[in-house]
Amino acid sequence: MNVDYGHYPQQWSGGLCNCGENFCTCCLTCCLPCITFGRIAEIVDEGRSSCLSQGLVYGLLFTINFHWVYSCMYRKRLRQNFGLPEEPCGDCCVHLFCEPCALCQEHAELKSRGFDPSKGWIGPPTAAPQVPPSMTK
Rank of each mutant, 00 (worst) to 15 (best):
L110G: 10
P85V: 10
F115K: 05
C17I: 15
M135S: 14
D116E: 07
R75I: 03
E106S: 05
I122H: 15
F23G: 04
G47R: 08
R113A: 00
S71N: 00
G38H: 03
C92K: 03
Q54W: 06
P33Q: 12
Y8R: 07
F62K: 03
V44N: 01
R48F: 10
C27P: 04
H67S: 04
C26D: 04
L78Y: 06
V94N: 09
L56V: 14
A41T: 01
F97N: 09
D4C: 07
Y74N: 10
I40Y: 02
N81R: 12
V3A: 08
P124A: 12
Y70F: 11
L61P: 06
E21D: 15
Q130A: 08
A127C: 12
G83L: 00
L103P: 12
R77T: 07
Y5D: 05
D116I: 13
L28G: 10
F82L: 00
L56D: 12
L103I: 15
I35W: 06
E87F: 07
E86N: 06
R75D: 05
E42V: 02
W68G: 02
K111V: 14
Q11F: 03
T36H: 07
E99A: 11
E86R: 01
E106W: 06
C34R: 07
N65W: 12
V94Y: 05
H7Y: 05
F23M: 10
C31L: 10
T136G: 07
F115C: 02
K76Y: 14
I40T: 08
C93V: 15
L96V: 15
G38S: 10
V57W: 05
A108E: 05
E99I: 00
H7I: 08
D4N: 07
G83P: 03
L60Q: 02
I40C: 06
S118Q: 08
N18L: 06
N2D: 09
H95R: 00
F115L: 11
F97M: 11
P124L: 04
S13N: 13
N81E: 09
C17Q: 15
R77G: 04
E86S: 00
H67Q: 09
F66A: 02
S118M: 09
T63F: 00
V57G: 02
C17N: 15
Q105Y: 03
D91L: 05
P88T: 11
Q80G: 13
G6Y: 10
I64R: 14
S53A: 13
G6N: 11
H107E: 13
I35F: 09
L84I: 12
L78A: 04
E99S: 09
L110D: 06
W12G: 02
L28N: 11
Y58C: 00
G14H: 06
V3K: 11
P85L: 07
E87Q: 14
R75F: 06
H67N: 02
E46P: 03
G83T: 06
Q130L: 09
P117I: 15
T136Y: 03
G123Y: 13
T25A: 08
L28E: 12
E109T: 08
C104V: 14
L110I: 14
K137T: 04
E109N: 07
T29Y: 03
G120E: 02
H107V: 08
T126S: 12
P117C: 13
Q130R: 06
E99C: 10
E106L: 00
E109G: 04
G90R: 09
N18Y: 07
C104L: 11
G120A: 00
P124N: 10
E21A: 15
V69D: 07
P9D: 13
T36D: 13
C101G: 11
F97W: 12
C19T: 12
V44E: 01
N65F: 11
